[in-house]
Amino acid sequence: MAKKKKSVKKTVDKSQTGTLRVKSGLAEMLKGGVIMDVTTPEQARIAEDAGAVAVMALERVPSDIRKEGGVARMADPEIIEAIQKTVSIPVMAKARIGHFAEAQLLEAMKVDYIDESEVLTPADEHFHIDKWQFTVPFVCGARDLGEALRRIGEGAALIRTKGEAGSGDIVEAVRHMRTVQGAITRLTRLPEEELMTEAKNLGAPYDLVRWVAENGKLPVPNFAAGGIATPADASLMMQLGAESVFVGSGIFKSDDPPARGKAIVMAVTNYKNPKLLAKVSRGLKKAMKGLDTSKMDEKDKLQGRGW
């Protein structure tokens, strides 16, 4: 009896879930793609048909959260489940910053990625979620390299710019992407003995600072988010070094979501081909109206959330 048991064990290969390789592996597969915010199964279907690589399930898109105010929380599990049943692409969902119980719930529902997001009302004023405790991978927003490396230090497997969600104004996402890329370039040129002080100044873990200095890139994929509304916006972010784009309000707050969604997908794949971009950008009807972020009050900006 004991002998038989042993031989069975031997034929089953030992496998591991939730390793960093497996977590950031999914982000690698999403590269060169568009992740679209959706609030209903119908929108999820439109997003998948348009060629989205994943959808982000949430209760309200950022521009509505901005308009309506109130506490923005994780989406209703019923909505998330309906979306999971509707599409075959990965389904992501947002949890509030520091709200590890929301994250536990989302993991139990088997969402494919959790966005610990500044778009929702933060649940903790000092601490983010300890993302190493989870099998499900996390994406987090960052405005600069220090913030990106703090999130990676906490276990994030994917970084995105914060931009200014729900604004339809690309300027903040551009600032954040340039800031991160500039800081990476700077690190690669610093002599070894300056790295510890640089880690102190960035507020980032020393080992990760060293890794970035040696490799000239983040140790996990780097996507763009926050303010993307047109195919040209998507191309701009890709050319600045983003490896994929998240589009929030930009698609379902425009006048023709299926056409705009498809055009942004084409723009991300063909971001180096302006002729084709001109072709896919035609006749899309109106983009979302948007808000000029330079006229926005600091207190109304979502990007300051997170520590």
Binding site: S15, G18, V22, L26
Partner: peptide
């Protein structure tokens, strides 16, 4: 299955 079931194994 979904992403939480993704894995690595020696083969």
């Amino acid at each position: 299955g979904r992403q939480v079931d993704s894995f690595e194994a020696d083969v």
